[in-house]
Simulated scan of single mutants.
Amino acid sequence: MMRFDPFREIEELTQRMDRAFGNGMTTQGARLAPPVDVHEDEQGLELTLDLPGVQPDDIQIEAENQTLTVQAKRDYTRGEGRTAHRVERAYGTFIRTFSVPAKYDLTKVEATFDHGTLTLRVPRSEAAQKRTVQVRTGGQLNAPKTVEAGQNSTAETQGAESTQGA
């Protein structure tokens, strides 16, 4: 579903180490990767990201060239006359980038944000939808077969070869 990106894995490992040892927690330029669940069904992909404390206006979603990027910002504000004794929550820029296969239509992404959870739905493209194809053999119409878009059945392949040779 998603391609392995070693640089993203290294960035996430660095962020985990920083969180574990308390480095860069309140740095304004910190880039954090929010946790995500990715599910797939016949309609398409569903990505669910945790963005606690983020305002909907501070979320940017970009879909371009089979890449889906989610960026959000949560600022740290310390009130006047207050001393911070412990700051453990993550602040700064949250960013996550996903490589989306071509069988999904990034022009129809839907996003909902509810109680700190962002849900993105990416539908399958029309060309990738399953459809029923009638197969003829010996002049008779056989039972319809459902084929996945982009796959050739044996009958289709043989038919194409026989028409090319004629």
Rank of each mutant, 00 (worst) to 15 (best):
166 A>K: 15
4 F>N: 01
87 V>P: 08
83 T>D: 09
92 G>Q: 04
147 V>D: 04
31 R>D: 11
5 D>A: 01
77 T>W: 10
15 Q>D: 11
139 G>A: 00
113 F>A: 07
162 S>W: 14
55 Q>I: 07
159 G>L: 03
90 A>F: 15
152 N>M: 10
102 A>C: 01
16 R>T: 14
88 E>G: 12
71 Q>C: 10
157 T>S: 14
68 L>G: 06
149 A>L: 08
163 T>I: 09
13 L>C: 08
136 R>C: 01
41 D>Q: 13
151 Q>M: 11
138 G>A: 00
123 P>K: 05
18 D>S: 15
64 E>I: 08
98 F>Q: 07
114 D>S: 06
26 T>C: 09
72 A>P: 01
11 E>T: 13
143 A>Y: 11
84 A>F: 08
102 A>M: 01
63 A>K: 04
76 Y>K: 09
10 I>A: 14
158 Q>F: 11
7 F>T: 02
79 G>T: 02
155 A>M: 06
120 L>R: 05
135 V>Q: 05
55 Q>L: 10
8 R>W: 07
102 A>P: 05
149 A>R: 15
79 G>W: 03
62 E>W: 04
117 T>D: 09
100 V>H: 07
90 A>W: 13
46 E>S: 09
32 L>E: 14
134 Q>P: 13
103 K>Q: 14
132 T>I: 04
156 E>S: 14
114 D>V: 03
66 Q>D: 09
82 R>D: 11
155 A>G: 12
58 D>P: 02
42 E>H: 09
